[in-house]
Amino acid sequence: MTDAELLARAALGDERAVGTVYDRFGQMMYAVAYRIVRQPGDAEEVVAEAFAQAWRDAGRFEAGRGSVAAWLTVMSRSRALDFVRARARRERITGTAQRSDPERTLGMSAPAVGPDAAVEAKERERRVAEALADLSPPQRTAIELAFFEGLSHSEIAERLNEPLGTVKTRVRLGMLKLRESLKPYFYERFA
């Protein structure tokens, strides 16, 4: 069964499909959320919200325009960025701030996928790490600021105190390089 079919079934309340979608993509969604919100409990909150949104919006998913993996990842990212912005507003009001180190705060359970899928996932992880390492540090930084902190080109330029054009070029060339090196590892191919 394709990911799109699974998504449709899950949206109808088929519990087995919900479980399978979670097992395939929950870890990835959590990783994005965790990288952005930097709190395990908050990341879980975000992922739960993202899945709830996914069931609601499943009818809008267009299979030809991207993979379910990308669609869910973007959803998790958006919910996480919303969460961080709301938290920042609360902290400004209450004068409190929480701190957590994502490098040290690790979760407690492995994703519930079969051995083949786990091997494939590990290989993907390794290749993504290598591809990112191949970027120049400024390219990597610009891309990470855009994706994980939700900054626009101009906000990145302001944050790094770099010219806007330089930032745009870094994002574009960095993503181009990633696209070429990661194409074999895409969740879906596009003709």
């Binding site: 990835m28 969604m29 990783a31 994005v32 990288r35 991207g66 993979s67 993996a69 990308a70 669609w71 990842t73 973007v74 990212r77 996932a121 993907r124 992880e125 993504v128 790490a129 990112l132 891309i143 990470e144 994706f147 994980f148 993503m175 990633l178 696209r179 990661l182 590892y185 895409f186 969740y187 879906e188």
Partner: peptide, 9 residues
């Protein structure tokens, strides 16, 4: 978007 999804890994 596929690239972006992979960044999570």
């Amino acid at each position: 978007r596929e690239v972006a999804a992979l960044l999570a890994l």
